[in-house]
Measured scan of single mutants.
Amino acid sequence: ELSWTAEAEKMLGKVPFFVRKKVRKNTDNYAREIGEPVVTADVFRKAKEHLG
């Protein structure tokens, strides 16, 4: 699991709890794919757009 900024964690907190774990995993995987060592708010937004 990658490191997350406080802002990205806050955004994740707005995701319904029953899918939060999956969203975190998918976002981590997306960040790795694009070469990001940390999940930022920008990476979170891009993952959301990319993953739907």
Rank of each mutant, 00 (worst) to 15 (best):
S3H: 13
I34P: 01
F17Q: 08
R32N: 06
K22C: 15
R45T: 08
K21Q: 15
H50N: 09
G52P: 08
V19C: 15
G13R: 15
R20C: 03
R20V: 04
I34A: 08
P16C: 09
E36P: 01
Y30F: 11
K25D: 12
E9S: 07
K14E: 14
D42W: 08
A41R: 06
G52V: 12
K14R: 10
G35W: 03
P16S: 06
F44H: 02
F18P: 10
R24S: 03
F44T: 01
L2S: 04
G13E: 15
R20F: 02
L12P: 00
K22Y: 14
Y30N: 01
A6H: 09
S3K: 15
E49K: 14
E33S: 15
D42E: 14
R32C: 05
E33N: 09
F18G: 11
P37I: 12
R20W: 03
T40F: 01
E9P: 00
Y30T: 02
K22W: 15
K25W: 14
R20N: 02
E36V: 11
E9Y: 09
W4L: 01
V19G: 08
A41W: 04
V38G: 03
E36Q: 08
E49M: 12
E33Q: 12
K10A: 14
D42F: 06
E49N: 10
S3A: 13
T40R: 02
K21T: 12
E7C: 06
F44W: 04
Y30D: 00
K10V: 11
K10L: 13
K10F: 12
R45Q: 10
A31D: 01
V15F: 12
V38H: 06
K21Y: 11
E7I: 05
R20Y: 04
E1V: 12
F44V: 04
N26T: 11
K10C: 11
V39Q: 00
Y30K: 02
Y30A: 02
W4R: 00
T27S: 04
D28L: 05
L12M: 03
H50K: 10
P16K: 05
V39Y: 00
E33C: 15
A47T: 04
E33K: 11
F17N: 07
E9F: 09
K48Y: 14
V43R: 01
K22E: 12
V23C: 07
I34K: 08
E1Y: 12
E33A: 14
K14Q: 11
F18W: 15
A6C: 08
E49C: 09
V43S: 02
A41V: 10
N29H: 10
P16M: 05
I34T: 09
E36W: 06
W4I: 00
V19L: 15
V43D: 01
N26I: 15
V19A: 15
I34F: 09
K46V: 05
P37D: 11
H50V: 11
G35P: 02
N29F: 09
K10D: 11
L2A: 04
T27I: 15
T5H: 04
T5S: 08
L2I: 14
N26K: 13
T40Y: 01
G35L: 05
E33D: 10
E9I: 15
T40V: 01
K21V: 11
A8M: 00
V39T: 02
A8F: 01
P16Q: 05
K48E: 09
V23P: 00
K22A: 13
Y30V: 03
A47P: 01
E36C: 08
R45H: 07
P16G: 04
F18N: 12
T27A: 08
M11N: 03
E33I: 10
A31L: 02
F44S: 01
V39K: 00
K25Y: 13
R32T: 06
T27L: 06
K46N: 08
G35C: 06
